[in-house]
Computed example of a mutant assay.
Amino acid sequence: MAVDPFSSVDPASSGSTDLRGALNRLRLVTGLPLAFAGLVEPGPGQLRISELHGNRTTSLSGLSVHSGNGLGGKAVALARPCCVTDYSSSRQISHEYDAAVAAEGIRSVLAVPIVVRRRVRGVLYGALRAPQPLGDRTVGAAMEAARDMEQALVVRDEARNLLAAARPPEDGSPGAWEEVREAHVALRALAPRIDDPELRQELLQVCGRLAGAATTDTPGPDAPAPPAGPRVALTPRELDVLSCVALGATNATTADRLGLRPETVKGYLRSAMRKLEAHTRLEAVVAARRAGLLP
């Protein structure tokens, strides 16, 4: 019976770490006293404020904003930045959330949507407690922070798709295991791009479970033998390189995929071969699979 190493993995988690990073950068660049953000929840365009920096009250924390309502809802509906100089008296927006905004003392507000593949996934806000215009520099910084968040969500989406595909095959066919190995390489290459340490660690744990599944399942006559003797300790980059080599990639292709120089790839490969007591690339791959390091 095939194991499922992914039952506890949730790559589509809230992204709070990414939001916090975006808000930190926004306040650092602009000097805004208050910045907050939230992601759109599943359903009919409902945004929930989940991260606040510089707030004095909890009036905005957990606030649900519906598409079209208030400034953030308008940004969601139009998929473009929106700004008001005096929130409570503005005729450009509806006023469902005036009480929460007033409790925080907010007057001038900017809302920038986070758009991924033409779909609004969240909103970043910057605010002042005085009715002063927010200049082009502030608007530009907020849009840059939103783009950073968009890239983070793209990476999360990619991780989710890879995790959905990277399951040990039930039929154990060689072709199916090649797909698993391809997903394993992609996951290892993706992990360093993820800022959220918890999600990054989850991806690496799944990579380890995939490698272990190749030795604990019984995918067929070509399956590697169970690990024997002491486990070889390869560094993360040595495993990255060896994973690419296992798919037949050249040093140049491996370097391009991992963002390394070909000479660096050669160094990691030599080190891995030495630890695995292998004389060729193929021997190194076989030894790594027998040790449960690669699927």
Rank of each mutant, 00 (worst) to 15 (best):
V3F: 08
V9S: 07
S14W: 02
G15E: 07
T17L: 01
D18V: 00
D18L: 09
L19S: 03
L19V: 13
R25K: 09
L26T: 07
L26C: 05
F36G: 01
G38M: 05
G38I: 07
Q46N: 12
R48T: 04
S50V: 07
S50D: 10
L52E: 09
H53D: 14
N55V: 05
T58V: 08
S61Q: 13
H66F: 12
L71F: 10
K74N: 01
K74Q: 13
V76F: 07
L78R: 13
A79Q: 11
R80V: 05
Y87H: 10
E96Q: 09
Y97L: 03
A99F: 14
V101A: 06
A102Q: 12
G105I: 01
L110H: 06
A111Q: 12
V120N: 03
R121P: 03
L124P: 07
Y125S: 01
L128R: 11
R129G: 08
Q132E: 15
G135L: 10
G140N: 13
A145F: 06
E150L: 02
Q151G: 00
A152N: 02
L162G: 12
P169K: 09
D171P: 05
P174Y: 11
P174V: 07
W177P: 00
E179P: 00
E182V: 15
A183R: 14
V185F: 13
V185S: 15
P192Y: 06
R193H: 14
I194V: 08
I194H: 08
Q201P: 00
Q201W: 10
E202K: 14
E202S: 14
E202M: 11
C207R: 12
T215F: 01
P224H: 12
G229V: 10
P230K: 02
P230Q: 09
R231E: 14
L234N: 12
T235S: 15
S243A: 15
A246C: 03
L247S: 09
A252V: 04
T253G: 10
A255M: 14
R257Y: 13
E263R: 10
Y268Q: 06
L269P: 05
M273Q: 14
M273G: 10
L282P: 05
A284C: 11
A287T: 15
P295L: 06
